[in-house]
Simulated assay, not measured.
Amino acid sequence: MKLNAASIAGVGLWSLALYLGFSPLSEAVMEQIDRLLKSIASRISPEPQRLFELTALLASLLSVIPFLIVGGLCNFGVEASLGGSWPISTGILACIGGGVYELGRRDGQAAKGR
């Protein structure tokens, strides 16, 4: 796999699709990272409240890393099996599917809350 614009776009699309498709998992990962960062902040600072403001931002940024790794593997698998032009096309389809799934999941949760 060459590192070019098409590969970066494919990895990004696959990562986004996985992030949307597994949104409960991404939220759980973000919460665990946030807890870890808050516990570290409370140990190193006498006033951890200032650091707590940054932990949510850092947790959201760090929670994307596992999806980038798995997205890279998906991109590599599609490129190895179907050829170089397919990872972007299938990534777009996966993003659409993940987005539709997320909309349906949220609508279902809203209907349960009524």
Results as ranks from 00 to 15, higher is better:
residue 105 R to Q: 05
residue 114 R to L: 12
residue 81 S to G: 01
residue 11 V to I: 07
residue 68 L to R: 04
residue 39 S to H: 07
residue 30 M to G: 08
residue 3 L to T: 08
residue 69 I to K: 13
residue 107 D to R: 09
residue 34 D to H: 08
residue 1 M to D: 01
residue 111 A to M: 13
residue 4 N to F: 12
residue 59 A to T: 00
residue 67 F to V: 12
residue 24 P to M: 05
residue 60 S to E: 10
residue 107 D to W: 13
residue 98 G to I: 05
residue 86 W to A: 09
residue 89 S to M: 09
residue 104 G to R: 02
residue 29 V to Q: 11
residue 79 E to Q: 01
residue 23 S to V: 05
residue 107 D to P: 04
residue 92 I to A: 15
residue 36 L to N: 13
residue 108 G to Q: 08
residue 57 L to H: 09
residue 44 I to A: 04
residue 36 L to W: 15
residue 29 V to Y: 06
residue 28 A to S: 14
residue 24 P to Y: 07
residue 62 L to E: 00
residue 89 S to E: 12
residue 28 A to L: 15
residue 44 I to K: 04
residue 49 Q to G: 11
residue 73 L to Q: 13
residue 108 G to F: 10
residue 47 E to F: 11
residue 45 S to N: 03
residue 31 E to D: 13
residue 90 T to W: 13
residue 45 S to H: 07
residue 102 E to G: 03
residue 42 S to N: 03
residue 59 A to V: 01
residue 80 A to T: 05
residue 70 V to E: 15
residue 25 L to E: 05
residue 78 V to C: 00
residue 62 L to M: 01
residue 1 M to P: 03
residue 60 S to R: 09
residue 105 R to T: 02
residue 87 P to N: 02
residue 34 D to M: 01
residue 28 A to C: 11
residue 50 R to S: 13
residue 88 I to P: 10
residue 104 G to C: 05
residue 25 L to R: 05
residue 72 G to P: 06
residue 67 F to A: 07
residue 16 L to W: 15
residue 32 Q to S: 10
residue 83 G to R: 01
residue 54 L to F: 14
residue 75 N to G: 00
residue 79 E to V: 00
residue 81 S to K: 02
residue 73 L to S: 07
residue 11 V to H: 00
residue 7 S to I: 05
residue 19 Y to L: 15
residue 14 W to H: 03
residue 6 A to T: 11
residue 74 C to R: 02
residue 42 S to G: 01
residue 52 F to Q: 08
residue 46 P to Y: 12
residue 57 L to K: 11
residue 24 P to E: 06
residue 13 L to T: 08
residue 89 S to N: 09
residue 101 Y to S: 02
residue 53 E to M: 14
residue 87 P to A: 00
residue 7 S to P: 06
residue 94 A to K: 03
residue 21 G to Q: 08
residue 84 G to C: 04
residue 35 R to T: 08
residue 21 G to R: 09
residue 36 L to R: 12
residue 46 P to R: 10
residue 47 E to D: 12
residue 51 L to T: 04
residue 94 A to Y: 10
residue 47 E to T: 03
residue 60 S to G: 07
residue 110 A to S: 06
residue 70 V to R: 14
residue 28 A to E: 15
residue 99 G to Y: 15
residue 10 G to R: 00
residue 19 Y to N: 12
residue 9 A to F: 15
residue 78 V to T: 00
residue 55 T to K: 03
residue 113 G to N: 14
residue 35 R to Q: 15
residue 5 A to D: 13
residue 74 C to M: 11
residue 72 G to S: 04
residue 109 Q to N: 08
residue 39 S to E: 08
residue 81 S to E: 02
residue 98 G to K: 06
residue 3 L to S: 10
residue 21 G to F: 14
residue 1 M to G: 04
residue 67 F to E: 14
residue 107 D to F: 11
residue 55 T to H: 01
residue 12 G to R: 03
residue 53 E to N: 13
residue 31 E to G: 07
residue 33 I to T: 01
residue 105 R to D: 10
residue 30 M to P: 01
residue 106 R to W: 07
residue 23 S to G: 02
residue 86 W to L: 12
residue 37 L to C: 02
residue 7 S to M: 14
residue 65 I to F: 00
residue 60 S to C: 04
residue 65 I to W: 00
residue 90 T to H: 02
